[in-house]
Structures are given as C-alpha cells and as structure tokens.
Design a protein around this nucleic acid. Structure first.
Lengths: 109, 109
DNA sequence: CCAACTATTCAGTGTTGCCAAGTACCGGTA
DNA sequence: TACCGGTACTTGGCAACACTGAATAGTTGG
C-alpha cells in the first residue's frame, strides 16, 4: 500500500499482532503469512520478528519453543495478563482516534 | 494519552492536519489550539510546525504570510490540488486499516 | 518596562517499520 | 550425494515521524 501505510502502521501493527495473539498463540512465520492473506501484502518479514521480540521484552507475551516438522523450531507466542491489559488500552486509544477521524471525515464533505 | 497514542499518531497526524486544511486555510498556532480543543491534549506545538513545514516541502500546501494583529506574522497554509489527492489517498489507506482492525476487534470477543 | 499571550523555529532524542542479507533445518529430486 | 525450495528466525543499518526543550520575536496591558 505504499509509504503512507508504512507510517500509519507505526503503533497499530503492534496492536494488530497482539489482537491476533489474543485469539490464539502463534509464531512469527504464521503471523506474517496470516497478515499477507488479509491484505497486508507488503509487511516485511523482519518487521514481525522484531516486533515479537519487542513485545516479549516488554513482558506482554510468554514464549515457548516448539519443534517443527518442516524446519527450525518455532517460537510460539502467547498473550499474557499484562498483554491483555495493554491490548485493552490499545483499543481505547484506537477508538479515540477513529472517533476523531470519523468526525473530520464527515466534516470534510 | 501517553506513548501508545504517540506511536499511533505517526502517519495519521499528517492526515488529520490535511483534513483540517481541506475545510479552510489555517496557520500553525490555530491548528494546535484546535487540536487541543478536540481532545488531542498533549500534541506538542513543535510537532505541528514541523509537520506543516514537511507538507509544504512535499508540495501539498501553499503558504501565505499574513500579518497578525496580536503577534508575529502568521504562515497561513492552504491545501492545493496535490494535497487533496494525497488526502484522498490517506482516507483510502485509513479505510483499509480501520476495516482490518474492526474485523480483528470483533474476532477478539 | 516587564509579563503574558501570540506565533514560529530548531537541534537532539527515541520509537518504529523497512530493507537486505544471513543462518539453519527439512524434504524431495536429479 | 548434491542441490533446491520452503520453513523459520536473526541482525545491522536506514529513514520517517512525533516529542522535548529552548530560543526568537512581535504585541498588548499593567
């Protein structure tokens, strides 16, 4: 989607990934593929891995190394209590932002 | 709103300001005040000015220096044709993002 | 004259996502 | 066996953006 989307993703991509993890545990390669399927065609692989390491460092997820049948071991991430709290906060902030922008968008016509 | 909002604003703040400018010309100080009124309480002054200089450099706005009755001259920004096009693109990207997040939000309950 | 408000600029910082390359493990095929 | 493609993760360097804090400057009122 281009450079515009890149900047817009900053801050939201983290929420997106945490939201995915809130429905089920997952690992990096899986998440990347999932996102590509849903239209986030050009999200760089490295981005997701870096993001996962970051949220782990922030203590929002727990990690478990699981052997794979078809490659190196997977790092499976699971949202923990702190992560859920953070995700709630994310949705609140997101809601605030969408409200403002919705008003602006309507005002603009 | 804290650090979360700061990151989420990246990329969208530009759209917000351009959306404001699409309804009428305005200058930095005015825009900052307007945003503060609408709940963007802690947007730094310097941020808006830097953003305005950026969009000017990108050729999305035209500028006119207008004397003020109560202070130094104002730099009044006006959205031009390229700016409108860019704003359209912004709304498309924003729409895409809100759609995905809405789905995720619903899926998360 | 100085304090307060109006109005803009600028240098330095941290966070984020992107890019590109590299490592490593596995199965199938020539 | 040797190689290739798919799986899976890591890393270093880069650019863009918003924030911080301080500086500059014009105007009005006490």
């Amino acid at each position: 989607m281009g450079k515009l989307a890149t900047e817009m993703l900053k801050g939201t991509l983290e929420g997106i990934v945490l939201a995915i993890l809130s429905t089920r545990p997952a690992y990096g390669y899986e998440i990347t593929a999932w996102l590509r399927d849903r239209g986030f065609a050009d999200i760089a692989e490295g981005t997701i891995y870096a993001l996962l390491i970051r949220v782990e460092r922030h203590g929002l997820v727990d990690v478990e190394k699981v052997p794979s049948e078809k490659g190196p071991p997977r790092k499976v991430y699971r949202l923990n209590a702190d992560g859920r709290e953070y995700l709630d906060e994310f949705w609140r902030t997101w809601g605030f932002l969408t409200d403002r922008l919705e008003q602006l968008r309507e005002g603009g016509r």
